[in-house]
């Protein structure tokens, strides 16, 4: 998990500092999950980066991640199934990790 070409990360693969992110970082982290980033992935990654800049939080839970995407990009993309296909596992966690955002608190 400690790829020397990546910025410092925690034991779950999240960046310690969201400012140290670059698109290349995203590609490398995604490849660990065998995800090849397409246009559709980048749209969500950019949405998350913008969301973090505007609100200074990661979407706190997967449900709220889906809701926020729906609010910004519409019903089709703001669905669990669409996001699960792009970011397998727990989409909010996987997408935040690739986008360089802090781990969602999952307090919900």
């Amino acid at each position: 998990m400690n790829n020397p070409s990546l910025p410092e990360r925690n034991n779950e693969g999240f960046l310690e500092d969201a400012n140290h992110w670059s698109p290349e970082t995203a590609r490398l982290i995604a490849s660990e999950d065998s995800i090849e980033l397409t246009e559709d992935h980048w749209e969500i990654i950019e949405f998350l980066r913008e969301f973090y800049k505007a609100h200074e939080i990661s979407p706190p839970s997967n449900r709220l991640f889906v809701k926020a995407v729906r609010e910004a990009l519409g019903e089709h993309k703001g669905s669990s199934i669409y996001l699960m296909q792009l970011f397998p596992g727990t989409p909010a966690k996987t997408a935040c990790r690739i986008a360089g955002l802090p781990r969602p608190t999952n307090c919900l």
């Binding site: 505007a54 609100h55 200074e56 939080i57 979407p59 709220l64 809701k67 926020a68």
Partner: peptide
């Protein structure tokens, strides 16, 4: 500290 103004502005988006 993080901006509560920015945190709060996520509220409408979450419903």
């Amino acid at each position: 500290q993080k901006s509560v103004e920015k945190n709060l502005s996520a509220a409408p988006m979450f419903g």
